[in-house]
Design a binder for these strands. Structure first.
Length: 419
DNA sequence: TCTGGGGTCCTAGGACCC
DNA sequence: TCTGGGGTCCTAGGACCC
């Protein structure tokens, strides 16, 4: 049997851990630059605030109803996520962290009749130990476990845990489940199925496998099998990331080359740090910069440069150099750039690097230097030591008007909290 | 005026091979 | 006039997820 643990309204719940006064009040967390709503408390959902709504479109409602807004604070969410996952991981031999707030795990080491009570205790322990409310779904496939978790979240009577074990439970759960809410059924697939008069998960599951395959191809067939109780999407444990991206939208468009270069240098350093954390190196690097797709009054520009590195690397200085050189090749003065990003691709384990006999770099030395820089940052805090290209100006290009303190990860904020 | 960020997998089609 | 068939690899774009 699979269990799926899902944190309720995760980002909002993180903010509430340190602001218990916000229990029962409508709260939302916003995307970068305070642009869109990305997490909503139940009270905010009840007000009709949709997921992804741009803040400026719901401004009136926010003011009228006293909705509390937070800028996103990913250091905080990442840290609380680690604590939740740490507890869950201890309780199983097979564990997959699926996203920042969800994980699948196998619970076959617990007798069937005790699995529900076992998971109910996990829900209580995490609420008490970390402060985050979670829901758990139990079933014979990952897709059914996702369905079960939605029921666990929706009905308080379940005490946070719902299981789909018997055939009757499966039929009942699927008959009351909208097809578009099924894991793997997106906008396009939903429209196709609705055109074929299928509106519930049960109606889809009762069609033939051939129907699913023909209409929705391989992914659709897998979903169909999973809804019928077969576990065809297995738990995958900790694979290397195949790509690492850092990208940002700017509060107002940027034209200056030096300011864009500063952003790109920082994106590189951020990506490379993640690369080193998973003990891997990248063989390719992509830099892109573009105008706002929402502006119809200006010509759209989309610049992107793919660089294949001579030797795979995770070194900040080297990646920054290649990225800036690529950017300079196609930067156009005067263009209103609204977003930029760096993507590392073709990622392989550090140990698999093929050296070049005629390499002009002393890589052992460069890597030693990089390790020292990382240690300094770990001890002294983020950006304690950086390359000059990462600090070309002191201009602020992002907007975060409602950001909460870094309660758990920054010593200065922890001291403030205690005071 | 104001509209996020970070991923994975699958498929179709082109280039190339014999 | 009439111009095959089968395979691999790579890439871009679509669809989906949170």
């Amino acid at each position: 049997m699979f269990a799926l643990a899902d944190c309720n309204n995760f980002f909002v719940s993180c903010e509430r851990v340190f602001r218990p006064d916000l229990e029962g009040r409508p709260v939302v967390v916003l995307s970068g630059n305070d642009g869109c709503v990305v997490s909503r408390s139940n009270e905010a959902k009840a007000l009709g605030i949709p997921m992804g709504a741009p803040l400026y479109q719901i401004k009136a409602l926010v003011e009228q109803e006293g909705v509390v807004c937070f800028s996103s604070n990913f250091s905080l969410y990442g840290d609380l996520s680690d604590r939740v996952m740490f507890i869950l991981r201890k309780h199983t031999s097979r564990f997959e962290q699926y996203s920042i707030d969800e994980s699948f795990f196998n619970i076959d080491h617990v007798p069937a009749e005790e699995q529900k009570a076992y998971c109910e205790k996990l829900v209580r322990d995490i609420r008490k130990g970390v402060g985050i409310p979670i829901s758990i779904g139990i079933a014979s496939s990952k897709t059914l476990a996702k369905v079960a978790s939605k029921y666990a979240k929706k009905y308080p009577g379940y005490h946070g845990v719902c299981e789909i074990r018997t055939e009757q439970q499966r039929i009942k759960a699927l008959s009351g489940f909208e097809i578009g809410d099924v894991w793997g059924i997106g906008r396009k697939a939903k429209a196709k199925l609705q055109a074929a008069r299928i509106s519930t998960a049960l109606q889809f599951a009762e069609k033939s496998s051939l129907f699913a395959q023909n209409m929705l191809h391989k992914p659709g067939l897998l979903t169909w099998q999973e809804l019928n109780g077969q576990d065809v999407i297995d738990i995958t444990e900790l694979p290397l990331k195949q790509s690492i991206t850092t990208s940002r939208t700017f509060a107002t468009a940027i034209t200056e080359q030096s300011l864009l270069e500063e952003q790109i240098a920082n994106f590189c350093a951020h990506c490379a740090r993640q690369l080193r954390t998973q003990k891997s190196v990248a063989q390719q690097l992509l830099v892109y910069v573009h105008t706002s797709p929402f502006r119809t009054d200006i010509e759209q520009h989309y610049l992107s440069e793919l660089v294949t590195l001579p030797i795979a690397t995770a070194n900040n200085q080297e990646l920054i150099n290649y990225a800036l050189a690529a950017f300079r090749r196609s930067y156009r003065p005067g263009v209103l750039y609204k977003k930029a990003g760096v993507v590392l691709l073709k990622i392989i384990p550090e140990a698999a690097v093929v050296p070049d006999l005629f390499d002009t770099h002393d890589r052992a030395k460069e890597n030693r230097l990089q390790r020292v820089l990382d240690r300094i940052e770990d001890r002294q805090g983020k950006r304690a030591i950086i390359y000059g290209s990462q600090l070309a100006s002191d201009k602020t290009v992002y907007k975060n008007e409602h950001k909460s303190p870094l309660y758990t990860t920054d010593i200065r904020d922890i001291i403030t909290l205690k005071v």
